[in-house]
Every structure is written in C-alpha cells, then in structure tokens.
C-alpha cells in the first residue's frame, strides 16, 4: 500500500523568513505519526501545508495520492484538521456546529445526523448537544473540535497540539480517545511539544528544528540511540564544578554528557549502567533514571532558549 502522506523537500517561505526548509517524510496508513519540535520549528506550518491551507513555496506534498498544490479541495475533503487554536462556532450549539460543518462536506443530512450522534456519544458530549459551545469546558471544547474534524470520516486526522492548555485529567481522557481512534484504523498526524504525548501515541515521529528534520524514528529507537539506557542527573548547585565530576568518570566508556545550567546530564549506554559509587558525595543531588523522549528532544534541539 502506498503511504498516505508523502512530503518531498517541502519548503515554505514568508518573505525572507523560511518556516519550513526542505522537509521530507511519509506517513503510512493506520499509523500515528508525530511532528515534534520547539516553538517556531515549523510544526504548524507543516500541518497547514498538509491540509492544503497554505500554498507550498517548493517541493511536493501528496495526501492520499493527491498533490495539495493542485487538488486543495479534494485533499481537504479527505482530511480532518484539529487546529491549535479553538475555532468552534461560538454562535451555534454543539449539535449545530457538527451539522453546519457537515454541509461544508456535502454530507447528506441523514448520514450527517447519524454520524454526529455517534461522535457526540464517543466523545461523551451527547448531553450537551443543545448547548452553545461557549458553555463548554476547555476539555469538552477540544473533544468537540476533534468530533468536528471526524464528521467527514476523514482518511487522515491531523491534530495540531491537541492537548495544549488542558489539565491532566482532560489530557488523559483525550489520549484514551485518540488511542481508541487509532485502534479503529484512523491514520493520524500529531504535532506536540509534550514528549509524554508523543511516547503514548506515536508509532513514528520526526523532530524538527528551525524548519528542518533533525531526526526520524520510533520513540523507543530514538531514546535508545540518543539517550542510551540510563540518564544520570548530577545537580551541581549554583557554583558547582562539573569538570571535577567528569574527571572522576574519565575511565568509564560509552558515556556522553551535557551541561545545562546547574545540572550535568550523563547519558549512559553500557549494559550495566553507571556504578553509583563513582558519584558518591558529588554535587547536591544525583538522580538515576530511565531515559525518555524528552532527553532526546533536548539533546537534539538544545537545552537553552531558542527564542
């Protein structure tokens, strides 16, 4: 089966500013593909290009075999977009939001009403259908936006930072729903800067920085490759001496390190991990932990402020 999305060297410039600088990737049918990166890395721009909302400057982008530059309407007809900023229709009720949207896709009334009822139930909004969207909580609004994006039974669901601004409960409820959708075979593209979200949901991901792909792979493979088996955080205190710590570790093989402010990060690759005795009495505090995607992300995109 050919990939559902194919991006080949896509570029987007705004005047002198290059938001997306030659990105290539593909998304297979049925998978959840993550686009990660710090603010300003080009995640939202990539999503807008994929949804045929914004014209490409260069490169080629195919969605379901259709060139977004030439078949914008058809691409958008097959796609559901969950934008980063809430744009539900505040003058309409929950039900009307779905119904009005279904008309934009030429969905016959009976089909649309059946589908809207199903979606409201799936997202636990069935008791709210007659309320104006202004009365909904942030979590409910997010669920409704996703329901709206599914009204046309899209081939591809694109979510731009779907859980930003939600409290932990609402976020976990949403993750649960998204995993269920994935189990039903919905192909998803997701941007996020929550690493936990990417680990929970994504089969494969790219990390972007300054408009380019820095790395691509599955979350597990990336963690293994870039963060090793164990991460040791040595909290040095404000005037701590990192050189001294590193001198003690001079003999340890398969180790890389990084200094960020008052913390020294040690990435340990060896099978047996690092002998805690080596770090006894060092710094203010030493934390041994499992590596995660956040370590990969910060190693590759930098621990300093990029803005």
């Amino acid at each position: 089966m050919p990939p559902l999305v194919v991006a080949r060297g896509i570029v987007k410039r705004y005047g002198a500013f290059t938001a997306v600088d030659g990105i290539s990737f593909h998304v297979e049918e049925g998978e959840c593909f993550g686009i990660l990166g710090p603010n300003g890395a080009g995640k939202t721009t990539t999503v807008r290009l994929m949804a045929a909302l914004s014209p490409l400057t260069a490169g080629q982008l195919l969605v379901d075999g259709l060139d977004v530059s030439r078949h914008g309407r058809q691409v958008r007809a097959r796609l559901g977009l969950v934008p980063q900023h809430d744009n539900l229709d505040p003058e309409l009720t929950v039900w009307q939001n779905l119904r009005v949207f279904s008309r934009y896709y030429d969905i016959p009334r009976a089909v649309a009403e059946e589908r809207a009822a199903e979606l409201l139930e799936f997202f636990h909004l069935q008791d709210r259908s007659r309320q104006r969207v202004e009365t909904l909580s942030a979590g409910m609004r997010r669920r409704l936006i996703i329901a709206r994006a599914l009204i046309n039974a899209p081939r591809l669901l694109v979510l731009d930072e779907p859980t930003t601004g939600l409290d932990p409960q609402a976020r976990h409820v949403l993750w649960q729903r998204l995993r269920q959708l994935k189990a039903q075979g919905v192909t998803m593209v997701l941007t996020t800067h929550y690493m936990e979200e990417a680990e929970q949901l994504c089969d494969r991901l790219v990390i972007l920085n300054e408009g380019r792909v820095v790395v691509e792979g599955s979350p597990q493979a990336l963690v293994e490759r870039y963060a090793g088996r164990e991460v040791v955080e040595v909290h040095l205190g404000l005037d701590g001496d990192g050189e001294q710590v590193l001198a003690r570790l001079a003999g340890v093989g398969d180790l890389s390190w990084e200094r960020a402010g008052d913390v020294l990060f040690l990435y340990v690759r060896g099978e047996d991990g690092l002998d805690p005795a080596l770090l006894r009495g060092v710094g203010e505090r030493v934390v041994f932990r499992r590596p995660n995607l956040e370590d990969v992300f910060l190693r590759l995109t930098g621990r300093g402020l990029t803005e």
Partner: peptide, 14 residues
C-alpha cells in the same frame, strides 16, 4: 474574533 473563516478554510470550501 470568531475565526469562522479559519475553520471553513480547512473544509472543501475555497
């Protein structure tokens, strides 16, 4: 304010 057109632009409308 309502960003209605942003939402509509993501559908088959031009």
């Amino acid at each position: 304010s309502e960003r209605i057109f942003d939402a509509v632009m993501a559908t088959p409308l031009s």
